[in-house]
Amino acid sequence: MFSQVSKRPWLIAVVISVLLVLWLLSGSLFRAKESASADQPIPEPGLAKVQIQWLQASPMQRQLVVQGQVEAWRRVELRAQISASVLRLDQDKGQPVAQGQLLLSLSPDDRSAQVARSEAEVRQRETDVSSAKRLRERNLFSANELLRLDSELAKARAELATARLHLRNTRIEAPFAGVYDARTVELGDFVQPGQSLLTLVDISQLKVSAQIAQQDVIQLTLGQQVAVQMLDGREMAGELHFIAAAADPDSRSFRVEVRVDNPESLRLAGASATLQIQTGEALAHRLSPALLSLDADGHQGVKWVNEQQRVEFTRVSLISVDNQGAWVSGLPPRVALITLGQGFVEPGQQVLSQLAKEGS
């Protein structure tokens, strides 16, 4: 065999070259292993692979977005105070009216006569009391008898006030300027005390009511500006003017009201609206809503990879969402977010991460 090798010197050169290459490769692998152990744990065979993207937090206005209901600033249902018939419909429903304007008239019946009788009774009692006082000054009239006459005068005056009130209740007037919105009676209808007659609304201003979760209400202050967006895209500026002192016992949420000027008297009461309330600045990350997931307790968060190449799950707060993505707070300022494979790994699991390519 040696004689054959000696006859082929090129074979010796090939063998030596192969051995030299193997020796060099063994040294390179050893150095690579030492370098990897110095920077991070050596990946174990069979680790799950995930793609990551480095995200840096940016200052962002924290915004509370809730759905609300637009209501008239004031709304009153006017009811009958007496038994009477509808005598006149003085205004048409749907029309703007001024404060004190006559809207509907009920039949006076004998109420005018009752006022006249009561006025005469009062005048008679006043004369009796006046005469009795003069006699009393000369000790010609007893104190008890004078007290009785004073009592009868007070009774007559009370009856006169009641008669005048009943007569005044035949005139249904607007307690404030607004819109004659609805009527529930017709000409000639007989009404009883407490029966609904008409509805008056004030839409010179509007209020948008909403329910705020108990963990968010502490961020609100009276007087702060609120953006109100209607379903048709119209945007209006409002001011937070009311925050309930106690939560609703069923929903554990707090009622808030936003005042919105409506100088054009737009018919928006009863519609839905979205309230956008600024609640201060926070560091936030912008990411795809598809990367949000839920933990075992149902809390929203995202998965990312720490320096030890282990998966972390951090709960986040959603600041805002639009067509381009979501802004969330609660993550470290710089984070290696898992963008591919997050559904196949669990918190605490060691993974093999790979930086996602641009645009992926």
Score class of each variant (00 low, 15 high):
S151G: 00
E159W: 06
A182Y: 04
A158H: 12
D189K: 09
F176N: 09
E152D: 15
L165V: 00
K155R: 13
A174R: 05
L160A: 09
G194P: 05
L167V: 05
T184P: 02
N169T: 02
T184S: 14
E152P: 03
P175H: 10
G194M: 06
A161K: 03
L153E: 10
R168C: 00
A156S: 07
D150Q: 13
A163V: 05
T184F: 15
V185S: 11
F190H: 02
E152K: 09
V179S: 13
H166C: 06
A161S: 14
A177D: 01
S196T: 12
F190G: 00
D150C: 03
R148G: 01
L167E: 08
L146F: 05
L198S: 04
L198H: 10
F190C: 01
T199V: 13
S151I: 00
D150W: 02
D181H: 12
E145V: 06
R157C: 01
V179G: 04
G178P: 06
K155G: 09
P193W: 02
P175W: 14
L165F: 08
R183T: 03
L165I: 00
N169S: 15
R148V: 11
A163C: 10
S196R: 09
L165Q: 06
R148N: 10
T162K: 14
A182R: 13
R183M: 01
R164M: 11
D150R: 06
R168W: 03
A158W: 08
S196A: 08
G178E: 12
T170V: 11
R168F: 05
Y180F: 15
R171I: 01
L147M: 12
V191C: 07
L165Y: 03
R148F: 06
V201M: 02
E173I: 12
A182L: 11
L197Y: 05
L200D: 12
G188Q: 13
V179A: 07
P193Y: 01
A158Y: 14
D181W: 15
L146T: 06
D150S: 13
R168D: 14
L167Y: 08
V185Y: 05
S196I: 07
A177L: 02
P175S: 07
V191F: 11
R157T: 08
